[in-house]
């Protein structure tokens, strides 16, 4: 069970997220409506994970994101899942850049994903577990800018790369692509060689490497 702090200014959505998280057996220790309250609530409750919206009062720009980055700086061990109404690579990159290698899990998801309840909770649990979760839409946009070594990948390898960037494990990739884990490992080995990114046993670092590559190549 995770102890969660939720920050979301729209009441309907906030109640929805709280209900959803509770429904799946986790505990929401605080549900707040702006960035200052979020920071205060985290200080007070020391939660296992923070779920926050990007856009919050008072200026409705990116207070939630900035608060998340600040929280991570003061406590690199705090997992943070940022949900955003829009896919904004800039926001995603800023959030991921703020995470030191080896620190706690981090995630950036489109708000629509809360509708896919089981998947959303799965993402929440993965971030709580220390994984990196990136919205498929962000990955799709990063891949769309493909050039250089990316053009040498086969469609199958691109598919694997996208799933890797989203933060899936080999097992999850194998399940989603309906191939064996050995097949996935073969694809990964070949695509990482083509991209000149060294394979890494650690899931977390692997995602970072892939995202850094995609970001840099765009």
């Amino acid at each position: 069970m995770l102890r969660v702090v939720v920050a979301e200014d729209a009441l309907l959505t906030r109640e929805g997220i709280v209900g959803l998280i509770t429904r799946f057996g986790h505990e929401v220790v605080a549900a707040v409506g702006d960035a200052d309250e979020l920071i205060a609530a985290v200080g007070l409750h020391r939660p296992d994970i923070v779920v926050t919206d990007v856009r919050m009062p008072p200026s409705f720009s990116d207070e939630g994101l900035q608060a998340a980055i600040r929280l991570r700086r003061s406590d690199p061990g705090l997992p943070v899942l940022v949900v955003s109404q829009y896919v904004q690579q800039t926001y995603a990159s800023e959030l991921l850049d703020s995470a030191e290698p080896g620190s706690a899990g981090i995630g950036y998801l489109l708000k629509d994903r809360i509708g896919d309840v089981a998947e959303f909770v799965d993402a929440l649990e993965r971030v709580g577990d220390g994984h990196t979760v990136v919205d498929p839409e962000v990955v799709r946009q990063l891949l769309r800018r493909r050039r250089g070594p990316l053009t040498r990948l086969t469609p199958r390898e691109l598919e694997v790369l996208a799933l890797m960037a989203e933060g899936r494990s080999n097992t999850a990739i194998a399940r989603s692509m309906r191939v064996t884990e050995a097949g996935v490992a073969k694809h990964i080995g070949s695509l990482l060689t083509k991209l000149d990114v060294w394979p890494d046993e650690d899931d977390h670092r692997r995602v970072r490497a892939v995202l850094a590559f995609l970001n840099g190549s765009g």
Partner: peptide, 24 residues
């Protein structure tokens, strides 16, 4: 933009969540 974001978008997001829960 503000009106749509605060109004219709929030309600649709809530609807999306409720339908997701109902399906689950």
């Amino acid at each position: 933009e503000r009106d749509l974001h605060d109004g219709a978008q929030q309600r649709l997001a809530a609807l999306n969540l409720q339908l997701g829960l109902a399906r689950h």
